[in-house]
Structure formats: structure tokens, C-alpha cells
């Protein structure tokens, strides 16, 4: 199918200091795409910019050929774990249920059906026994899986995940990638900010190299080269690959 995301000339600044600029990007349907780049390169900023979660200086963004506001419910976003309030007094099941809110709208309460869907998602991430667990008592990997479950119950078409492998154990990593693979086979599009260059070839079919602007973008086969890595991580010793 044609492009589902089209970004033209996107520039984002925090307090007048540009963070990423001149971003042009077209993303095809049904890919599993890695966004890589050093710390502070603007990976999270790019995702938030595409989702219009932060204001931009310039740029035109279309998702599914429409403005983002017309796509509510079709897009799921998993933030970097640190970006939410883990001290909030609630349970794992409750957080997963939040993924259903977009389909409920204002005032309406989650139904039994919604709860069943949330439990199913918990089963997928192998955490059904944690439904009543306090979210403050989860390990890093479990928090990531709970977020993934919340994205799953949203039943979206397009998924953005910001470093889902951050601070994660091997078991959680395997579970998450199995699910991402399955989602791709169901026709979803998955965009992942990824830190571990060693596993890019293993898990992804496309890759974006970013450092303030896009350095390279294409199929992993042709684009994930030493040259592009060097260009992106310029001046950074030992990026831990090859």
C-alpha cells in the first residue's frame, strides 16, 4: 500500500532552540521500523512531533492522509517509561484499561467487554497474574510490557514505541518482539525508537538514522551500514556493534 505517514519540512524547537529540523519522511504501510541515533538526537522529539504532542515551528504532517486529530483510536503510543507518573495509586489492569478510553469518549465508563480485552492483553504479555498488582511495584521490563498491553487493547493500526527495550530483561525483550512480529503479520505498522544497534538487523525491516536531522532512511538490508552508523554517531566511540 501507499504511504501512511507523510511528514514535510518538520522543525521542532524547545524554547527557541531547534532540536530537529527539515525532517521529510514518508513511511509505508505494514513495516516494522527502527529509529536509531545517539542520546539527545531527537528521537523522542520526532515521534512526539509526528503525533502533534508538542508544538512545531514548521511542518505538515498527514497520517492515513488526514490530520492526526481525525485518527483518534487508530494510533497507539508507548512513551519512554520514565515519562509517566508511576506513583499514581493504581493497578496493572487499570493502566491497561486506559487503552480503551479512546473508544469510550468522555464520561462513559469501561464495560465488562473492555475489561475482558484488557485481561486478554495481559495474557499476551504473560502478566495475567499481575492484574491487581500496584504499578509502583513492577520491574522495568514489566512496566514496558504493561505499556505494550495498553497499546494492544487500543486496537490501533499504527504503533509508536519509544525505547520499549530500555532497562529490560531478556524474557521481556523476547515477549515484546514476539508480539511486535505478530502485530506486523496482522498488517499493523510499528515504529520503534531503538537503542541496541546489535539487534536492529534481527528485529526490523526498515531503519531511520537520526541526529538532529535524518541521516539515512531505508531498508535495513541496504541502509544499515557501517558508513551510516559512523555518520550518525559521529564522535561517539564504541557504539557497540560489529
Amino acid at each position: 500500500m501507499e504511504n501512511i505517514i507523510e511528514v514535510e519540512d518538520l522543525t521542532i524547537a524547545y524554547q527557541n532552540k531547534p532540536i530537529i529540523w527539515d525532517i521529510d519522511l514518508k513511511i509505508k504501510n505494514n513495516v516494522i521500523l527502527a529509529i536509531v541515533g545517539p542520546n539527545g538526537a531527537g528521537k523522542s522529539t520526532l515521534i512526539k512531533g509526528i503525533l502533534s504532542l508538542i508544538p512545531s515551528l514548521s511542518g505538515k504532517i498527514e497520517i492515513f492522509g488526514k490530520n492526526i486529530n481525525k485518527n483518534k483510536g487508530k494510533i497507539a503510543y508507548v512513551p519512554q517509561v520514565g515519562n509517566v507518573n508511576w506513583d499514581f495509586p493504581t493497578t496493572v489492569l487499570d493502566v491497561v484499561l486506559m487503552g480503551r478510553y479512546v473508544h469510550l469518549g468522555w464520561v462513559k465508563k469501561p464495560t465488562k467487554k473492555d475489561k475482558e480485552k484488557a485481561m486478554e492483553a495481559l495474557k499476551m504479555i504473560e502478566m495475567e497474574n499481575f492484574a491487581d498488582r500496584q504499578i509502583s511495584q513492577l520491574s522495568g521490563g514489566q512496566k514496558q510490557r504493561v505499556f505494550l498491553a495498553r497499546a494492544l487493547v487500543q486496537e490501533a493500526e499504527l504503533y509508536f514505541l519509544d525505547e520499549p527495550m530500555q532497562g529490560i530483561d531478556i524474557k521481556s525483550e523476547a515477549i515484546i518482539f514476539d508480539i511486535l512480529k505478530k502485530m506486523k503479520s496482522e498488517g499493523k505498522t510499528i515504529i520503534v525508537v531503538h537503542h541496541d544497534l546489535k539487534t536492529v538487523k534481527k528485529y526490523f525491516d526498515s531503519v531511520i538514522f537520526i541526529n538532529k536531522n535524518i541521516i539515512a532512511y531505508g531498508d535495513v538490508e541496504t541502509t544499515f551500514t557501517k558508513e551510516n552508523i559512523d555518520k550518525t554517531y559521529i564522535g561517539i566511540q564504541d557504539v557497540g556493534i560489529i
Partner: peptide
């Protein structure tokens, strides 16, 4: 009573609240 779930998502994860239309 009416905005219980909206308050929860607003406190826990404001970006998710935006994406969910709240």
C-alpha cells in the same frame, strides 16, 4: 463521578490523555 477515568489518565499520563481525545 462523571470524570473519574479522565482524571486518572490525566494524572497518570497526560500525553495518552491527549491521544485519547481528552
Amino acid at each position: 463521578l462523571f470524570l473519574y477515568k479522565e482524571i486518572k489518565i490525566f494524572i497518570f499520563d497526560e500525553l495518552q490523555a491527549i491521544l485519547s481525545g481528552f
